[in-house]
Each structure stands twice: as C-alpha cells, then as structure tokens.
Design a binder for these strands. Sequence first.
DNA 1: CCACATTTGTCCGTATGTATC
DNA 2: AGATACATACGGACAAATGTG
Lengths: 79, 79
Amino acid sequence: MPESAEYLRIADDVIADVRAGKLKPGDRLPSIADTRAAYRVSYGTVQLAYVRLEALRVIRRLQGKGVFVTDPKTWMREP
Amino acid sequence: MPESAEYLRIADDVIADVRAGKLKPGDRLPSIADTRAAYRVSYGTVQLAYVRLEALRVIRRLQGKGVFVTDPKTWMREP
DNA sequence: CCACATTTGTCCGTATGTATC
DNA sequence: AGATACATACGGACAAATGTG
C-alpha cells in the first residue's frame, strides 16, 4: 500500500479543498464517475471516501442530485 | 427495500451498545468474521460500518489486533 | 527464526435499487 | 421514457500486522 489508502487520500483532498476555499458550502462535488476517472479508482473506493466524509459532516450525499459541501462551521475544529 | 441500510444499522447498534454501557472504552468488538455471521452480511458491509464509526471516533481499527471502543467523551454529544 | 492461523485493511468488478432531471 | 447520479450490497483477491507454536 502506498503512503496511505486511496479512499483516505480522496477524503483528505476534499477537506483540503474546503479549507483552502476551493470548495464552498453548498458547492456540488464532481460526479462520482468523474472522481473515479480522476483518481482511477473503482466506484466503491469513492463511496468509501464519501461515507467517511459524511460521517465527518463535511458533505451531504443526496441521491439523484449529487454530493454537496456542508457548512464547515459544524466540523472545522482540529485534526 | 431495506428499512435502512445494513451498514448503518450495524454502526447504530455499536453506538447504542456504547451508550448503554454494554461496550466500554477499550473493549474489543467481535471480529469482523463474527459480525458478518451475526448480521449475515458481507465483509465489505461490516467494513463500511466501521469506516463510518471510525470517522465518528467511536472506534479505532487496529490491523492484526482488532476493533476497539474509544472513549465516548470525545464523541458523545449531538445526534 | 520460521511457519501458520487469525484479524483487519484495501481495492476491484458487478448487480440492483432509488431518486432526480 | 430515458439519462444521469447516488445508494447499497456481494464475492473475490491480496496485503499487512499480530500472535502463537
């Protein structure tokens, strides 16, 4: 295994983008299909990252609509 | 059509057990193989529940050792 | 040190369901 | 009706850490 797992890398990248302001509350993330292609991973790997990000309250997953960034105020405290 | 997803049910059950005191900080959860059998689900479904619980800081997953309950003080607030 | 079993970790491909547009 | 997008689940495969003999 590389430095860290791919699903963690995907999740960390999203968090980093939010912290950097590249993703703002309400923004929609690229589709899972696009993310899959960008990272060259399976659908399941992206979903694993999203399940984690949802638990961390960084995103909301809305079936049929997309995946959206939440308000960082609710989670942006420490590591 | 599932009342709710199996992986969420597994995760919620663990949280409920911790809240009820049936699982205490430092306790080791049943092995994934046992949990699989108990819920009659696949390995991946249990892992999904655990990835979520890890993000919620309810458990720590230690490769080769097991899955352990964390100190609820760090997460037991909110819904 | 070595071999082996156990246990968790990660990833893939596929199938099917459900919601939205 | 059809296309798009997310949701959930399964089975399989191999890697990595741990513990035991």
